[in-house]
Amino acid sequence: MLLKTKIIPLVGAVILAFSSAAFAQEETVIIGHVGPLTGPNAHIGKDNENGAKMAIDELNAKGTLIGGKKVKFVLDSEDDASDPKLATTVAQKLVDEHVNGVIGHMNSGTTIPASKIYYDAGIPQISPSATNPKYTQQGFNTAFRVVANDGQLGGTLGRYAVNTLKGKKIAVIDDRTAYGQGVAEEFAKSAKKAGASIVDNQFTTDKATDFNAILTSIKAKSPDLIFFGGMDAVGGPMLHQMDQLGIKAHFMGGDGLCTTELAKLAGTGLKDDEVVCAEAGGVPEGEKTALNDFKTAYQKKFNQEVVIYAPYVYDATMTMVQAMQEAKSADPKKYLPYLAKINHKGVTGTIAFDPKGDIKNGSLTLYTYKDGKRTLLTVTK
């Protein structure tokens, strides 16, 4: 009996020591995520956050190792409300918290000013959705994106407007943000080159709700196509007011317009086959198994459809973690060179970056809307 009493504490001590050693080996890696979680773009920002959560939950569930050590990933999600000033405040907060990397921001207008703060701190940043070319033209080796830029997006839409939709007289509206203005300028440049005439240029803001004045001006010019550079929260009500004013024209926009929520926001203004938009990414029909599986899992987890960028956020997160694994370290300075030369097979396709940090061979997906549902037209480069 005495012998047993001595053995049990000894065995317990050994188990405790082993558990403590195992626990001590586990490393915490903090991934920052930033997007608009409040304001008119909150539905897109929440979609982004959900994509990051899916990646983090999956990584933790499978017991991911970095340099032979088990890692616990923590998501530090912040709200920039699509406000450039708030974006820099939030960026500095993440730097001060010593995050290991950042996925975000969502808007070009927030991503660009925040990128300087991450660069100064040496923290890698992957935007899943910022398309303004300036983001990767600043010479910051910490800046990456997993979607095509406005040059590709606007250029493709401009050619499609003229060559396929036969647009000859085109009106252009933008919301004066870095994204909206950038994609509208690239579109106009491409459409003019393809032979169209830009009959009117109008401007609004990313928080506007009344477009009667600018739409009345545009109606007087009788355009056969209107392009809007901005987000769905503005584009949807704009479509509704176009319908009220009896404006008969195709309506086009970039990825900010091209969401599953547009039908709700536009109401009766969303007519079949009259809206064409482009997502700054895409997978050809024959290669969509992984993306479709992701969308099914997303629906099951969050009880809603993907709005637009969640798959790109998921891929951005997984790409960053693959770089950490290849470097055998979550230290930003150590894994940054591996991120620059990464080749990641994601649900949105293969992710690899050019020397500026832009995705190589970025795809674009063109959509229209039928019966209130976003409907695929084509995937192109």
Rank of each mutant, 00 (worst) to 15 (best):
V95R: 09
T38Q: 13
G122K: 07
V102H: 09
K72F: 05
T88S: 11
S129E: 08
G254V: 07
A290C: 00
E27D: 12
G180K: 04
K248Y: 00
G67R: 12
K85D: 15
M106N: 10
C258W: 06
A81M: 11
T296Q: 01
I126G: 04
K219Q: 13
L3A: 12
M252V: 11
T136N: 14
T350L: 07
E285A: 15
G235N: 01
D76T: 02
K192E: 15
M320E: 06
V313W: 02
Y314D: 00
S197H: 14
G68S: 09
G122V: 08
A24K: 11
A143P: 05
H43P: 00
K333P: 03
M238G: 03
G286Q: 15
M54D: 04
D315F: 04
E285Q: 13
P337M: 10
F23M: 14
N292C: 00
V276T: 13
V307Y: 03
K85Y: 13
Q325S: 02
P337Q: 05
Y119A: 15
L265N: 05
S19H: 05
G267T: 05
L2W: 04
I7Q: 00
M324T: 05
K62T: 10
K193C: 07
Y118K: 09
M252R: 09
V321Y: 01
F18D: 06
A323S: 10
G167Q: 03
K333D: 13
Q304R: 13
V283D: 10
A87W: 11
Y160R: 03
K219I: 05
G346S: 05
N100D: 12
P284I: 10
G167V: 03
K85M: 14
I66D: 06
M320P: 07
S222I: 03
T136K: 10
D206A: 15
T259V: 12
T89V: 14
K288Y: 00
M54S: 05
T289R: 06
A340E: 15
L291I: 00
V102C: 07
S20P: 00
N149F: 11
K301M: 03
Q322A: 04
G362H: 12
T131G: 13
P9T: 06
H33N: 13
G349P: 10
Q299C: 00
D57P: 03
S129P: 09
K6T: 07
G254P: 09
S222A: 14
Q92G: 07
V90L: 06
G167E: 02
D293N: 14
F211T: 00
V183D: 07
L339Q: 07
Y118P: 08
V14P: 00
K189W: 09
V99W: 03
D174Y: 01
K381M: 12
P36D: 09
T350Q: 12
C258Y: 04
R374Q: 11
G230L: 01
Y119H: 15
L262D: 04
T368Q: 02
A194Q: 15
F211L: 00
A114S: 15
A17Q: 04
S115T: 12
A327Y: 08
I56T: 10
G139W: 12
A352T: 14
